[in-house]
């Protein structure tokens, strides 16, 4: 990959049969799945909370959040801990697949076909060796308010 300006490092991961990526700068750590404590009155895609070295971390099932069939997590699943603003959250995914660098020019605009839910999150498409990886933004991953949760 090139070294020109505008390059960013991305971390790619699999959710079901799809591949997504986020900016590696957002990632704090990657860890295996541990049992989460279910929260009451919470949307299904919030799997619950886990203990991350003393902090209480909410876990979002990214598949369910993106409108795909929900994940039944096993020890093989992975939690990507990301920093969004002041908060840290864990993203439940199937596996981390790649670390790649891409320039802004390589990222294509997502076609206007996808569902509203996907459109809310997918910010661009990155073709890599015959695969299509969706670059997603995480700003709306958590429910904005209790209203949305209900």
């Amino acid at each position: 990959m090139g070294h020109e300006a505008g390059n960013r490092e991305l971390i790619a991961f699999r959710v079901g049969r799809q591949e997504f990526c986020i900016n590696v700068m957002m990632v704090r750590e990657i860890r295996g799945w541990t049992g989460a404590t279910e929260l009451p009155r919470t949307p299904r895609y919030v799997k619950g909370v886990i203990n991350l070295r003393g902090a209480v971390l909410p876990i979002v099932d990214l598949a369910q959040r993106l409108g795909l069939p929900g994940t039944e997590p096993t020890a093989r699943n992975v939690i990507i801990v990301v920093q969004i603003g002041h908060q840290q959250i864990g993203l439940l995914v199937d596996a981390v697949s790649d670390i790649l660098a891409a320039s802004d020019a390589e990222i294509q605009v997502a076609p206007d076909l996808a569902s509203d839910l996907v459109k809310n999150f997918v910010k661009g498409l990155l073709p890599v060796e015959g695969r299509m990886i969706s670059l997603i933004a995480l700003d709306n991953v958590l429910p904005a308010s209790e209203l949305e949760a209900a």
Binding site: L39, A55, V56, L57, E146
Partner: peptide, 21 residues
């Protein structure tokens, strides 16, 4: 800190087995 207030729940804690209660 990382999520939001949940009605009916005042706060959380971590138990001896490392799980959140």
């Amino acid at each position: 800190a990382n999520y939001r207030a949940v009605s009916g729940i005042a706060a959380a804690t971590v138990m001896g087995d490392g799980r959140v209660a």
